[in-house]
Simulated assay, not measured.
Amino acid sequence: MDKLAILIPAYNEEQTIEKVVKDVKEVVSAIPGSVIYVYDNNSKDNTVALAQKAGAVVRHEYAQGKGAVIRRMFREIDAEAYIMIDADDTYPVEAIPDMYQKIVDKDVDMVVGDRLSSTYFEENKRPFHNVGNTLVRKLINTLFKTNIRDILTGYRAFSYRFVKTFPVLSRGFEIETEMSIHATEYRMLVENQVISYRDRPEGSESKLDTYGDGFRVIKTVINLYRGYHPFAFYSIFSLIFFLVSMILFVGRVLLPYPATNTVPNFPSLIVSMILLVLAFITFFSGSILDAIETSNKRNFELKLIECEDKKKNG
């Protein structure tokens, strides 16, 4: 088991990968047992050769997407602590020792490199990314009642416990959102660390699709809220069905009835009853799924105990 594993996902980063590896190597030289891993994701340029030249251990993930790369990294590497940093030279490697110490000394499960509280909005040249980061942060912190200050950052430190119990479901850049919500929902200890941010050097191109990735992130947030808080999620639809049913029944059936002693709008009665049935179905579906999720969280706690035993024995 490594003391510290530096995980660098890379896809066509020949302009910056050598510098990033060398900078990281210099910083972690004071931490014995540190290994730098570059996981190449089908790069078409000289990323692999330059990473090897700089002294990194290069491995490959042939399924395209950052989520696939992280799944491979987390499953293959055993270490007491992990630092994940992007290969685009936008993050300060000088923060690595502090992030590492929080993992080993304070038993933190995830340290989030917080760009948004420092230079991100000045350095980032893509205004829609600024808006998107802010909206996603506010949405998640509101829905999941947390205080993670930078949801989409790719600069994070992890404990062995987090890495070995995190189910990677996303394929793309929405993986950071999934990590943040997973840590929050399973009551893992998360700390924010303010870091400086610098924009990509000239000639280095971002792999992000502002609108496409933004849509996928929002979709991920909704799906995770449905999964982790099914009662609250389905209760919204149950309430809507119930209110529409009552409005339709009272307005179209109940109020006109005394005048004729007959049901003047029989189709409205049928529709209102169907909506009422749907309201009950969605309510009880949410209740059942909520009980299942509670059981899953209990099982996860047992899984954490097994993970700790494996770490001690490994």
Results as ranks from 00 to 15, higher is better:
M84L: 12
R75A: 15
F283L: 15
T90N: 03
S204P: 00
K19G: 03
K310W: 15
K53P: 04
S118Y: 10
P201D: 05
Q52K: 14
V253R: 08
H182Q: 07
D209L: 11
Y155N: 08
F121L: 10
D150Q: 07
E308L: 12
V112C: 06
L135P: 00
Y37H: 09
R75N: 14
I83S: 05
Y160T: 04
L269A: 12
H129Q: 09
I240T: 08
G214S: 04
G314E: 13
P97A: 12
T142Y: 07
M179I: 01
G251N: 15
M1R: 13
V253A: 10
F237Y: 14
K164I: 07
S159C: 09
D150E: 08
R226M: 14
F173G: 00
K53F: 06
P230A: 10
M273G: 14
I83L: 09
K106G: 04
M73V: 02
H229F: 14
T142F: 07
V27M: 10
I175N: 00
T16G: 06
V108M: 06
T165L: 14
G286W: 03
A54N: 07
L255V: 15
L278F: 14
S272R: 09
G65P: 01
I274L: 15
G212L: 13
Y11P: 01
T134P: 00
V69G: 00
T90R: 03
T165E: 11
E202C: 00
A54D: 08
L243C: 15
L224A: 08
A30V: 13
V58G: 02
S196R: 10
K312N: 14
Y91M: 09
A183D: 04
I195N: 02
V57A: 09
L143W: 09
I270Q: 13
A157C: 09
T47P: 02
R200K: 14
I151D: 02
I270W: 11
E293T: 13
V190F: 05
A63G: 06
L278C: 14
E306Q: 11
I247P: 02
E185Y: 01
Y39L: 06
S238I: 11
A232P: 05
A95V: 08
T146P: 02
T165D: 11
Q64W: 04
L169W: 02
G55R: 06
